[in-house]
Write a protein that binds this DNA or RNA. Structure first.
Length: 441
RNA sequence: GCGGGUGUAGCUUAGUCCGGUUCAAAGCGCCUUCCUGUCACGAAGGAGAACGCCAGUUCAAAUCUGGUCACCCGCGCCA
């Protein structure tokens, strides 16, 4: 039995007999000569076959083919595929698995509506466009990990089951837990802070669960949170500096590793200036007022419209499609956020906006035990409920802070996707867990 | 939770404002036949939707009205 050759290796096997296995991507029949494209994990290869095609061969059938690799005549080369200079002359075609008729053409899933794209996820995941999105997501996560490891951060695994809500009021999934109940973690926040006490610098690639009754293009009930936390910061801007390194590395990585995917999805990596602009939220609102006459200067946060506007400003003024917005109001941030000593109504916190959407949140945390206990009370909670978390501070904690990226959001913004759900292989939202929940009743 | 919008063949859409023998149409996909150089192959023919569902207005409803279900978008909240 011949060993399987990967399609991408075919060009090195001219004149040789090989065996390839994969899916039928497309078929072009000319009667007594049939061309079809075979797809495996490494690429696409044209197979040419005279009179020996199995009865009813169709797209997505899985086949095993033995044949001779031939150089294509020069005029017949295909520049669009990597194996375009060769083709496989099939001698034996064995059908391993037969597919039923496809509900739509897999060649161009860009034209499909979102519900169809998700209803047929096991199938649409096979399309070039969807695979390209997931490839970019893989690079984003991998670069986050690599960059932080290179900065001497330790990776940890956050628990998914937690005893209390992290951020206070936000909606949270309740689950049965033996004789009692527990929750799905909204964020690895507490655990990464606790681990600063052990490793100083930590990060995790975690799942975060939010039961927000939100149906928008930028929310998921389960998303990938790229969380980092660092101790012994000299000042809170160290956090933004680290964040900036990660963002730049991620963009560089995508550009270097995903040129094919970017081209296919007609996307370009966001433009970024040498230093990502940093402005206070109040200044942002003032700028928006001057530019649009829209007065949101009393609002405690930027509206989605504001976020788009200030990004537009950053692009025009600084040539950057990424911007830091800093100093959010104390009452809008969680209890553990460090207030600015010079203006305690505002915090040493920041968001990163990219092409009009928030992709990161971060800030300095309160590391003083007494102050933290006071704040928990001020936020209307009982310190006893946070006893476990508070141990980390009770037993000594340096000045620290951190941030978290939404992985799918980075992918969405870099690729210009219309809906965050497209950036997830298996998105969960209010109406869907794989299938539609409305079909279950 | 609030506001706006959409629902026509397997998929993507036209037709809806100005009800009526181009009102059920097109492209892709599917079936049949033809084709030895295609790569979104091509050519000829064919099947496939009582226009989300229910009710109403009308001589007449895909088209107007109400309800209902599903989906999409925006906002709040957030990554």
């Amino acid at each position: 039995m011949k060993e399987r050759t990967l399609i991408k290796e075919a060009p090195q096997k001219i004149g040789k007999q090989i065996k390839v296995e994969g899916w039928i991507n497309t078929i072009r029949s000319h009667g007594s000569i049939v061309f079809f494209d075979l797809r495996d994990r490494s690429g696409i290869l044209q197979v040419i076959c005279e009179k020996k095609v199995p009865e009813g061969l169709k797209e997505e059938d899985v086949v095993c083919i033995e044949g001779l690799v031939k150089k294509r005549p020069q005029k017949m080369e295909n520049k669009d595929i990597e194996t375009g200079k060769v083709e496989l002359e099939a001698q034996k075609i064995e059908r391993i698995s037969q597919a039923v008729d496809l509900p739509f053409a897999l060649k161009d899933t860009a034209g499909l509506s979102l519900p169809v794209l998700l209803d047929f996820r096991p199938l649409t995941l096979r399309s070039e466009q969807v695979k390209a999105i997931l490839k970019v997501e893989e690079e984003v996560i991998d670069e986050f990990r690599q960059t932080l490891k290179s900065l001497d951060f330790t990776e940890f695994q956050a628990p998914a089951i937690v005893p209390t809500a992290t951020e206070g009021g936000a909606e949270i999934f309740k689950i049965n837990y033996y004789e009692t109940s527990a929750f799905l973690g909204q964020s690895p926040q507490f655990y990464k802070q606790i681990l600063v006490g052990a490793f100083e610098r930590v990060f995790t690639v975690a799942k975060a669960y939010r039961a927000e009754p939100s149906v928008t293009t930028r929310h998921l009930s389960e998303y990938i949170s790229l969380d980092a936390e660092m101790g012994f910061i000299e000042q809170w801007t160290d956090l933004m500096d680290t964040c900036e390194i990660i963002i730049k590395n991620i963009f560089k990585r995508i550009e270097a590793e995903c040129s094919k995917e970017l081209k296919l999805l007609k996307a370009t990596v966001p433009q970024i200036s040498k230093n990502i602009p940093r402005i206070k939220m109040r200044e942002a609102q003032q700028t928006i007022l001057e530019r649009t006459k829209r007065d949101n200067t009393k609002e405690p946060d930027l509206t989605p419209e504001d976020e788009k506007e200030i990004c537009q400003w950053a692009k025009e003024k600084h040539g950057s499609e990424v911007i830091f917005i800093t100093h959010y109001p104390t009452k809008k941030r969680p209890f553990y956020t460090m207030p600015d000593k010079e203006d305690p109504d505002f915090t040493l916190s920041f968001d990163v906006l990219c092409r009009g959407l928030e992709i990161t949140t971060g800030g300095q945390r309160i590391n003083d035990y007494k102050m933290l206990v006071e704040n928990i009370k001020k936020w209307g909670n009982k310190p006893e409920q946070f006893e476990f978390y508070l141990q980390a501070f009770k037993y000594g904690m340096p000045q620290e802070g951190g941030f978290a990226f939404g992985a799918e959001r980075i992918v969405k913004q870099v690729l210009g996707l219309e809906n965050l759900r497209e950036a997830s292989a298996f998105p969960r939202d209010m109406a869907r867990i794989d299938g539609r929940l409305s079909n279950n009743e």
